[in-house]
Lab assay of single mutants.
Amino acid sequence: MAEQVALSRTQVCGILREELFQGDAFHQSDTHIFIIMGASGDLAKKKIYPTIWWLFRDGLLPENTFIVGYARSRLTVADIRKQSEPFFKATPEEKLKLEDFFARNSYVAGQYDDAASYQRLNSHMNALHLGSQANRLFYLALPPTVYEAVTKNIHESCMSQIGWNRIIVEKPFGRDLQSSDRLSNHISSLFREDQIYRIDHYLGKEMVQNLMVLRFANRIFGPIWNRDNIACVILTFKEPFGTEGRGGYFDEFGIIRDVMQNHLLQMLCLVAMEKPASTNSDDVRDEKVKVLKCISEVQANNVVLGQYVGNPDGEGEATKGYLDDPTVPRGSTTATFAAVVLYVENERWDGVPFILRCGKALNERKAEVRLQFHDVAGDIFHQQCKRNELVIRVQPNEAVYTKMMTKKPGMFFNPEESELDLTYGNRYKNVKLPDAYERLILDVFCGSQMHFVRSDELREAWRIFTPLLHQIELEKPKPIPYIYGSRGPTEADELMKRVGFQYEGTYKWVNP
C-alpha cells in the first residue's frame, strides 16, 4: 500500500466541504435556525453545542446559521458558553472563530407547556436576519415526558411559513410498544414523516454505516452471507464503567431499553437485511423493517440478565456495585447486563442465532459485530482449526478484520490463527472521521433520513421486546451478580454456547 501524504486539518475539512456542497440537498446560502429545546441540560452542553461548534469551526454548516437555545432556566448566552465550552476542545488559535460562533447564538427562556412562551420564541426567531423565511431545525434534547406539549406548541407557534421545518427526537422513544405508539401517533398528527428525525446516534458511527458497503459492494461476501456458512452472529456493546452516581436515570430504563432495543437491534438489521433497491432512505429502511418483521418476540429462556457488584480487589469506582450508587433505588432489580438470542425467521437466516450482548462495568470498552462461520467440513488438521470470524469493530479503534487459519512457519503443516486486517487509523491517516452527532446533524440539514429511525421500524423493535420488558417488570427477577471489570455473568457464556457459538479464547485482536 502506497504511503499517504499527511494533510493538514484545513485540507481534510476542505475535502469534506467539497463532498457536502456538491450535493443538491445542502442549501449552503439559505438562512437556517437550529433550535435546541432543553438548552440547559446535560445532553445540550456535552453533545449538541459542542457538535454545532465543530461543524461551524470546520465550515460545514450553511453560511447563515443561527443557534437558539430554549429552556425553562433563566440563562444568558454567557451562561450557555460557560457550561458548554469546556466540552468544545477549542484551541487558543480558534479564539476569534469561537467569538464568531457565540455571536450567532441567542437564548430564550420559557415554559414547555405555555403557548405564550412559544409565541415569544417565534418572535425572537423572526427578528433574526431573514428569520421569518429561514429553515428551522428543532432538536428535542428533553425528557420524553414533555415531548407531547413541546411538539404541539412548536407546531402551533414556531413553524417557518416559507422555509422547511424538521424536528429531531432523542431516544428513548417511549418505554414499550404502547407508549411508543402513543408518542408516534401524537407526533405524526403534527408533522409529516419526512419532517421527523428520530435519532439513534449509533447509526451515525462510521463502521455501522460501513456495514452496507461491506455487504453490498464486495462480491466475495454475497455468496457466504447466509445460514449455510454463518453459524452465529454476535452483536456486542461493552462499557468498562458503571453508573457513577447517575444511576437514578438509568434505573428508569435499564440496559435493554438503553442499548439493546435500539443500538444493537439497528446493527442487527444492517447485518441481516436484503440488498435495498438503492441507497435512498426509504429503500434502506424498507429492508430493515422486513428483517424486524421476521423476528419473533424474545423468549425468556433465551435471556440472561445481570447486575454488577463491587470488586473487592478493585480501586475507586470498581469497588462499588450498582446498588451502592446513592441515586439507585434500594434493592433495585434493574439489569445492567443483558444477553438475548433472537432468530430472523426467513430463508437466508433460518436457524442462525443472533446474540445481542450489552452491559456496564465490564472488562473493556468495545462495540462490534462478529460473524462466526461454520467449521470446515472434512477436517484434515486433527481438530487444530478454529472457526473463521469476520469482525466489524465499531469502537474504539474502528477496524474490519477476518480471523482465519494460516500455516505456522516451519517444517510442518501446523495451522495457527491469524488475521486479515483493515484498521482505519492506519489505512486512512488523512481522513477526519466525523463524530456520530456531527454526521447525523449534517444529515438533518441535508434532509437525508437514511440513518434515522422510521415509525414502522420503531414499532417493530418495541413489538419484539415489550413482552419481555413487561414480564421483567411484573416478576422482578433478581439479576445474576457479576463482578465489576469482569466479562459479565458466566451464564451468558453458557447461553451463547448452547445456541452454537464457540468461544476459543486463544486469539485476541490487537490494534496495530
Rank of each mutant, 00 (worst) to 15 (best):
E156D: 14
A78H: 11
A127G: 12
K171F: 04
E206Y: 08
S123G: 15
D24G: 14
K45R: 14
L142T: 06
H201S: 01
E99K: 10
T145W: 02
K89T: 08
N126S: 10
A141Y: 03
Q119N: 15
F21N: 13
N105L: 10
Y70H: 09
G163P: 05
L75Y: 13
A6N: 15
I162P: 13
K97I: 14
V68R: 03
G248R: 06
A134D: 12
I167N: 03
F21D: 13
F216R: 04
I187N: 02
L203H: 00
L60I: 10
G59Y: 03
C158M: 10
Q111V: 15
F237N: 01
P240K: 06
G110R: 01
A109W: 15
F21W: 12
G163K: 15
N126Y: 10
F66Q: 10
K205P: 02
S160I: 10
T243V: 11
H27E: 15
T76S: 12
L96C: 14
E99A: 09
L128Q: 12
S123Y: 14
Y202Q: 01
F34N: 00
R9K: 15
R74N: 15
F241L: 05
K95P: 03
D42V: 00
A25Y: 15
C232E: 07
I196V: 14
G14R: 15
T51L: 02
G254E: 01
M207V: 06
S29C: 15
R104W: 05
A217S: 14
P144Q: 03
P86F: 07
F26G: 13
G14S: 15
S188E: 11
G163Q: 09
F241V: 05
G131C: 10
Q83P: 05
G204R: 04
K46W: 03
L140M: 14
V208D: 04
L190E: 07
L137H: 02
Y202S: 01
L16V: 14
K47Y: 10
T31W: 12
W225N: 03
F56S: 03
E18C: 07
L96A: 13
C158K: 01
L7H: 15
R72W: 01
Q209N: 09
F173T: 00
V68C: 08
T10E: 14
F237A: 07
V108E: 07
S184N: 11
L121P: 02
I36V: 10
F221S: 07
F216I: 05
N226Y: 06
Y249S: 04
I187K: 01
V150W: 03
A231T: 08
W54N: 09
L190V: 12
I154H: 03
L177M: 13
K205T: 03
N105P: 04
I33Y: 12
I35V: 10
S179E: 08
A217I: 01
F34Q: 05
L211T: 06
A44C: 09
Q83W: 10
I167G: 01
I33A: 08
L75T: 09
E156I: 15
G110T: 00
R192A: 12
Q209K: 05
Y202L: 03
A90K: 07
V169A: 08
P143D: 03
N210V: 02
P50C: 06
G41L: 01
Y147T: 00
L55W: 04
F87H: 13
A103G: 11
K46G: 01
F138G: 02
R104T: 05
P172C: 04
S132K: 13
S8W: 04
N135Q: 14
I162F: 15
G23V: 14
K89H: 11
S73W: 02
F253S: 10
L121A: 07
P50W: 02
A134L: 08
I48S: 02
T91Y: 09
L121C: 07
V169Y: 08
D228V: 07
R215N: 00
Y112M: 02
G222I: 07
S8L: 04
W164C: 08
S117L: 08
D251Q: 05
G245C: 10
P62V: 00
K95V: 08
D30L: 12
M207Y: 02
D79I: 06
L203Y: 01
V108W: 07
F56V: 04
S73V: 00
D176A: 00
F26P: 11
P144K: 01
P143A: 07
G14D: 15
I52D: 01
S123P: 00
S160N: 13
I220N: 00
Q178W: 13
D194S: 14
A115Q: 15
S106R: 13
F56H: 06
T91I: 11
F237L: 09
K171S: 01
F66R: 13
G131V: 09
L43D: 02
Y197M: 00
S8T: 14
R136Y: 15
E239R: 02
R166S: 05
F101C: 03
G242P: 04
R9P: 06
Y202R: 00
I230F: 06
E148F: 08
L142D: 02
F250N: 01
K46P: 03
P223Y: 07
S8R: 15
P62A: 08
L177A: 12
I199R: 04
S84G: 10
P50I: 04
L214G: 02
F173M: 07
M212N: 02
F173W: 09
P144V: 02
D194C: 09
H155L: 06
D200Q: 05
R74Y: 14
